[in-house]
Design a protein around this nucleic acid. Structure first.
Lengths: 207, 207, 207, 207
DNA sequence: CATGAATGAGTATTCATTCAT
DNA sequence: GATGAATGAATACTCATTCAT
């Protein structure tokens, strides 16, 4: 409160928002969506309750913002691999590595998200509005879509045999997620990625 | 009213209990555990609220009963396959078939259960008591364990190469569940099972 | 079921009613009126729930019956003392003895009753209907009234000084009840009665 | 809105809390603990339901707070009399006066409390937790204890004869409470106190 | 912008009572 | 008469959201 107020204000403002997001990440990951309470989040964020509602329209949108901000760099990284000039098979391995690295960090939050969106497939009531859930589904399909693109490149290059790329992409995805959830991932992500791609790829290659 | 009184009585009793279980299955599957309300369940079951509490000590135990009654025949079926004299590889395919058939029917309820038990791995708050969650975890591991047993038989028989059977079992499991959740399962379960075992097994065989 | 059915019936019927009353006495005494549940009572009485409602119109009337049946011999005993030809002061002591003997047995149930009737004085909602509560009040006043009668005899006989007999009767009563509630009553009721009447009659001063 | 903001804030805060306490006092006194509903309390307090739970952790603790805040000045007043340099006998009379004044105001609430704590003696189920009930018992015994202290002073001073001071203190207490409950207390508390101490000290005999 | 006091819709659970058998 | 399955009214407590300061 003084001549530095404006600067402080701006700085504090950024900080507050981030504090809330960080706390929300922690609490949502630990407790799930419903069990996480705004009270817990603000306690961890060291802010007032009203502040949360200055930055986020409601709990649902706070969660959504969290997901969006966390997934954005991941999506970019995946896209860069797709766009790169690597050969198809190493591309797959790079993407697996990226996936594992991402889920190792965000496993719990993503589990919560996926549950609320109901396996990204079925209808039915949820803590989220249908409109919101569609956004998650679209985002989710777009990342899986990148896997499909590269799988198609592999097929075109004759590296793997003909198969349903959508199902294959999902299969790959499900195995990765399971590995992370079950804590099967060693500290050396490269090694784990190699193991997954090994089991996976050389099962579907032409020989 | 008459000579069938006793039977009627018993039948009616079963009916009420079963009505509640059926309704609970429906609502829990659609809404998840927390979002499912006892009011909705009794509305669908066409019973009074107190009736639910005559048969089940609380919402948690109602859910547990549901899981237990549904999983029991599945576990038995799996066990029979394990104990059978089929050769190892067909055993795997039979188990996949059984798994798919089970999850096609119980996908939603099981998703709910697995979410509440937190991926059956991590700690953290839940709607379930820790004691209860342990029961689910033990049950879950026992079914996965049956897969592991047969995978070991396959290795012993030289049908598949040396590998971490636990991870492999989980991988197989995750792919099956994903197939069901994503509605990738055709009406012909045998066909789907063959496809899964094909992609999966011939990726890990010695050839 | 046979030729002794009628007799058995009658006998069983008496037994059932008494079993319920005995169980109700136990449970009401231990738990209070509200905390006592019909379920607990029938569990202890080893009867069906409906049976309770064959003999008593509802929980309130079951409690009332209990009180009435228990107090009836006590009232009679008090009345006999009043009507006897004992001199006034010994009459007082006899009544004190009777009171103590009664409350030693029925302390808990009576505490519950008196609480529900709200100190037998004030208005306000209760678990009991106003009509019912009036019955308790009338009964209660009648027993206190017997004390008053004898106190008046004492005054007429010049044994005790002029005083407000109503207040005095209540004071005597309150001390007796307190002694019992506080478990100050020794096994030898006569001794306790003597102590009470001593303090009461002669005060605590050194003369 | 202005320079008194802070104060207003504080004042308002007190007001809501106090409104709830006042309403709770009224409802608990009229209905007893169990029969008193939070809905009734908030209706009388003119607050929202959540507000009650902002200030008090639950119904039990609301009740406890009520008792504590009401008894605190009473305890202090008693203690001051004990510590004063008055001669023993007048001390007794002063304490009686204090007791009467206190119970005239708080009779109903205290009756409710004493009933829930079961005559401050016996065990058994209650609406209160055992831990909480112990607090009440301790508090209760400490006030009775002050009476005992002064009674001992009286004995030491030769003002009253040797007697069991605990029983005597309880006897005195029970008579006071009864006088209040039975509305035997005239507007002139001094007069009532004198009457009580008179009967108590000198008994009812003609000498 | 930051705050937190106030709010009330929403929900699991209890238990006296009924009534068909 | 005896029974107990079925019932639903009643109730404490939670927590996202608002808004005055």
């Amino acid at each position: 409160m003084g001549n530095t107020r404006l600067t402080e204000h701006y700085t504090d403002s950024r900080t507050k928002r981030q504090q809330i997001l960080d706390a929300a990440y922690e609490i949502f990951s630990r407790k799930g969506y419903h069990q996480a309470t705004v009270d817990e989040i603000i306690a961890l964020a060291d802010t007032g309750k009203g502040t949360v509602y200055n930055y986020f329209v409601n709990k649902e949108q706070l969660f959504y913002t969290l997901i969006k901000e966390r997934s954005s760099p991941f999506e970019t990284a995946l896209q860069q691999i797709v766009d790169s000039s690597e050969p198809p098979l190493p591309k797959i391995e790079s993407m697996i590595k990226e996936y594992i690295a991402f889920y190792v960090v965000n496993a719990d939050l993503w589990r919560v998200m996926m549950h609320e969106v109901r396996g990204l497939g079925t209808a039915g009531h949820s803590n989220f509005s249908e409109k919101q859930r569609d956004k998650y589904r679209i985002w989710f399909k777009s990342t899986i879509g990148m896997l499909e693109i590269v799988l198609n490149e592999c097929i075109a290059a004759g590296e793997i045999r003909q198969c349903d790329v959508t199902k294959t992409a999902y299969a790959l995805f499900s195995v990765i997620v399971m590995m992370v959830f079950q804590k099967f991932v060693s500290d050396d992500i490269d090694e784990t990625a190699k193991a997954v791609s090994n089991v996976f790829l050389y099962g579907v290659t032409n020989r």
